[in-house]
Design a protein around this nucleic acid. Structure first.
Lengths: 139, 139
DNA sequence: TATTGTTATACTCTATAACTATA
DNA sequence: TATAGTTATAGAGTATAACAATA
C-alpha cells in the first residue's frame, strides 16, 4: 500500500481507531470497578488460562521482567495471585491465579460492556462476515 | 444480549481484542520512534487538527486537566507545541502545534504500519463491508 | 558463564486536592 | 462564587542497570 492510502482505507483506519479507544476505555473502567489497573487485569486474565513463570508473563505483556515483579506483588497482596516454586528449575517462580483471583477475573469478563453491546446490533450474518474479515486482517 | 454470549460473538470479541492489542503496540512503537510517549503522540495529533484550550484537551484525552499541564510542558520544551493566550477569556490557554510539531505528527502517521498492512490484504469490497459494519457498531 | 527474578533508580501518566488568576 | 489552569502529592507502569541465587 502506498504512503498515501485511499479515502476508504483512511476511514476504516479511523473507525478501527475509534473501536480501539472504546474498547480500551471499557476495559480500564471494568478493571477499575474491581479496583484493578489495566495491567493488573491483563496479567490476572492471562493467569486464569494457565500459571506462568515471571519471564513468560513479561513476554506476553510485552514489558520488561522487572515490571512484572511489582504487578504480581500487588495482586499477591490482595490474594488474587500466588507465586509457586518450579521444582525443575529453582530460579523460576511460577505465578498462578488463586480461586479468588479466578472469581474476580470471571466477574471482570462479564463487566465488559463493549464485548456485548455494539455487537448486539449486528445480525449473525454480519458477525460472521466481521469474524472472517478480522481473521484475514490478523492472519 | 445475555451474560453468556454465543461462541461466534465470543470469537469476534477475542479478534477485536487482538486488533486492539496490535494497534496499540504499533501506535506506541511509532510514537517511541519519534521519542514520544503514547499520550504525547495522541495530544500532538489532536492539536494538528485544531488548537485547543487545555480543558478541552483533557476532555478529548479523557483525563484530568492537571495531567494535560505536564504533557504540554514536555511537548512545549521540545518545541512541538506552544501555549497561546485566549483574548476572549484571559484564564484560558490555547495549545497549538508548531510547524515542527505538525511535521513530527505527519511523520508519525506515516510510520503507523497497522494503518496500512493488515488492510492491504483486503479487497475493496471487503473494506467497504468492514467500514459499514464498524460504523454500525459504533452507532 | 548464562539465566531468573529481584532491587534500585528515574521518568511518565494518572487522579485528587489545594492554589492563582481571572470571570 | 464559579471557572481555567497550575502546583503538589501519591500511586502505578515503564525501561535500564546492577544484583543474588541457581543453572
Amino acid at each position: 500500500m502506498s504512503r498515501h492510502p485511499d479515502p476508504l482505507t483512511l476511514e476504516v483506519v479511523e473507525l478501527i481507531g475509534e473501536v480501539v479507544a472504546r474498547f480500551h476505555e471499557d476495559y480500564e473502567s471494568a478493571a477499575a470497578e474491581h479496583s484493578l489497573t489495566g495491567a493488573q487485569a491483563r496479567l490476572l486474565s492471562l493467569l486464569c488460562l494457565e500459571p506462568l513463570p515471571m519471564r513468560r508473563l513479561a513476554q506476553q505483556l510485552k514489558c520488561e521482567p522487572s515490571n512484572v515483579t511489582g504487578i504480581v506483588d500487588r495482586l499477591e497482596a490482595r490474594g488474587l495471585v500466588e507465586r509457586q516454586p518450579a521444582p525443575a528449575d529453582r530460579r523460576v517462580k511460577v505465578a498462578a491465579a488463586t480461586a479468588e483471583g479466578r472469581k474476580v477475573a470471571r466477574s471482570l469478563r462479564e463487566t465488559l460492556r463493549f464485548a456485548r453491546e455494539p455487537l448486539a446490533g449486528l445480525s449473525e450474518e454480519e458477525r460472521v462476515a466481521l469474524r472472517d474479515t478480522l481473521r484475514r486482517m490478523l492472519g
